[in-house]
Nucleic acid binder design. Structure first.
Length: 567
RNA sequence: GAGACCAUAGCUCAGCUGGAUAGAGCAUCAGUUUGCGGAACUGAGGGUCGGAGGUUCGAAUCCUCUUGGUCUCACCA
């Protein structure tokens, strides 16, 4: 809704400025605390034409034909700033749209095909608390982009032929596999054991190299043993992801690009650029003019492919199938993804948009699956749900066990997801048990609570027969400050989605959802809803509660957090 | 050693392409209608925006230097 208002303001200002005989220029619009939208365009014109910005702002406001635009209310100049407010019509239109559009409110303004890859952790163990930052950022972006209107396909790119997997496969034939545990955890056990062994007896590394060559050549037995190892880990990983409301549409395997011949083809293309040479038997590519000092190794001296080469083939494939290709990657991939983009550019192929997130480390240092130094996602989720159960039990002791468990799950997962997504990806963090288990009052539970509260109010009203979705509302009766604030907040939802989708910054939505919940709580605190005599006003306010319920539910859903009807 | 990213209130963080008195939450302190879910609401205190220069009418935001942290610099992924 806010996007429509903004568009009208843009049209109005452009018309007005050109009417004044001034060349069009960046309108420099921004939301402001002084108005629903503010323009700094007077500064821009002033510096170009050596005029007084205050006078210009005044002149523009005076010349503007506001009446033509139904969503625009008051427009005024405050010094050099032009402040624009929404109209009463905007408020009432917002209400009627939420009621008619329901859960599709606030989205659907973009179109196109997107391929988004996230998580893609090596199948050599369970997801740990660092990996889930990738998963949560990725999945939230997927939900945001879908809400915006894109058709999004999600990928988990599976490394099924790298060195790590060769080690896992080797480990499975040398060490005991514990079938009593979740399979991804048992894979980690043998992987850690194998790495320790290889450290003690370096001559065994040759056996790993041998396995890699066999796989690359297409040796059936080796391929089968690799893929068994991968599936064991992947099954466990999928289970963890699904616990966090995350699922991928497809799991492309690295090996398919080797077997299809795509890797060989792309190596030929790279050679054809004339920028490669053979160094100690390995094929290397010069990317110095892209700012990379060191040459990029594209093929090993024994002829086997490398991660980067397979990834190039994968990206070529992705680029042919989508308008936007997005990857969520950890900070350790900064350099390699830069090299990947440079190489794709060199080959004239579309480059992916890369979202990099910084690492989550432990107080004692960085995490490592290989060394067994990590906190698994499963462990975190178990602990958090357990703590959430304690909280529910404390507040709703009379409720049955399965209710408490269900709520504890929703609240626990919500808390973890919210905690990850509220921080912008470029901040590195240190994992801390005490903080992880502390249910921040204004985090996910706060938003979920607001939703449950709205549901419960409506439920009560329906039982008493004083409200249902078809009741007539009279939006003109909604004039209290807290009511208007709540409505404006709901109206802004589309602009938040638009911004998150454009800049790939999901944390803004987390903040928004919290503010929306806050606006609802304030409204409900200050304005009587059920306990009033005026039936029309009562139905109207209940209708507003219903709208808030809808937008809270959409917001939570877009964050991948369950919206409980009661908690 | 080189490069990239980060540094804002006691703690965790917002702050969009430089622009109107630097914002939230947590924590602390003080309060709240016999009124609808108190996992709620109101208010207060708390900041040399790591440091030093510079560009600009204007800098938390841009440039340079500097300090501290994270990540990277493999024929690993």
């Amino acid at each position: 809704m806010y996007l429509d208002f903004r568009k009208q303001v843009e049209t109005l200002l452009n018309e007005t400025i050109s009417h004044l005989g001034i060349e069009t220029i960046d309108l420099d619009l921004e939301p402001s605390k002084h108005a629903d939208l503010a323009s700094k365009v007077a500064f821009r014109i002033a510096s170009r034409e050596k005029k007084d910005p205050k006078e210009l702002a005044g002149a523009i406001v005076k010349a503007a034909n506001v009446k033509k635009f139904p969503l625009i209310g008051k427009m005024s100049a405050m010094g050099p700033y032009i402040n624009i407010n929404t109209s009463r019509n905007y408020i009432e239109e917002t209400i009627s749209r939420i009621r008619s559009e329901g859960t599709s409110f606030g989205g659907g303004f973009c179109e196109g095909q997107i391929l988004l890859e996230h998580t893609s952790a090596n199948p050599n163990g369970p997801l740990h608390v660092g990996h889930i930052r990738n998963s949560v950022i990725g999945d939230t972006l997927v939900r945001i982009l879908r809400k915006a209107g894109y058709n999004v396909e999600t990928h988990y790119y599976v490394n099924d032929m790298g060195r790590q997997i060769a080690i896992v496969s080797w480990a499975l034939s040398h060490f005991e596999f514990d079938t009593s545990k979740k399979s991804d955890h048992s894979i980690a056990d043998v992987y850690i054991e194998a790495n320790a062994k290889l450290g003690e007896e370096p001559e065994k590394v040759m056996e790993i190299d041998k396995l890699m060559q066999l796989v690359e050549k297409g040796d059936e037995a080796t391929i089968k043993s690799f893929s068994e190892a991968v599936l064991l880990a992947l099954d466990g990983i999928k289970e963890t992801l699904s616990r966090m409301n995350i699922r991928h549409d497809s799991f492309p395997y690295e090996s398919t690009f080797v077997r299809s011949g795509a890797v060989t083809r792309i190596i030929e293309e790279i050679k054809a650029t004339g920028r490669t040479k053979v160094d100690n038997g390995a094929l290397v590519l010069d990317l110095e003019d892209y700012g990379f000092d060191k040459e990029l190794v594209v093929q090993r001296s024994d002829g086997t492919s490398l991660y980067i080469t397979r990834d190039l083939a994968y990206h070529e494939w992705k680029g042919e199938r989508a308008d936007r290709v997005i990857n969520i990657l950890g900070a350790d991939h900064k350099l390699i993804s830069g090299q990947l983009k440079a190489t794709l550019d060199l080959l004239g192929k579309p480059e992916p948009e890369v979202v990099i997130f910084e690492f989550v480390s432990l107080p004692e240092g960085s995490m490592s699956t290989r060394r067994g130094k990590f906190i698994s996602a499963d462990e975190l989720l178990d602990q958090v749900e357990e703590q959430a159960f304690v909280e529910v039990d404390m507040r709703r002791p009379e409720m049955p066990e399965d209710f408490k468990q269900k709520v504890a799950h929703m609240v626990g997962i919500g808390a973890v997801r919210y905690d990850v997504i509220r921080v912008s990806p470029e901040k590195s963090t240190v994992f801390n048990w005490k903080e992880a288990l502390d249910f921040e009052k204004q985090g996910a539970p706060f938003i979920q609570y607001s939703h449950a509260r709205a549901c419960s109010i409506l439920n009560k009203a329906q039982e008493e027969g004083i409200y249902n979705e078809t009741f007539d509302m009279e939006p003109s009766l909604l004039v209290e400050d807290t009511e208007v604030e709540l409505i404006k907040k709901m109206a802004a939802f589309d602009s938040i989605i638009e911004e998150c989708a454009r800049e790939l910054k999901p944390h803004t939505l987390a903040i928004y959802a919290r503010e929306l919940a806050e606006a609802f709580n304030q409204f409900y605190r200050f304005v009587p809803v059920i306990n009033i005599d005026d039936d029309k006003l009562k139905a109207t306010r209940l209708g507003l509660v219903d709208c808030a319920r809808i937008v809270l539910a959409i917001s939570l859903d877009t964050l991948g957090i369950d919206a409980p009807k009661s908690m």
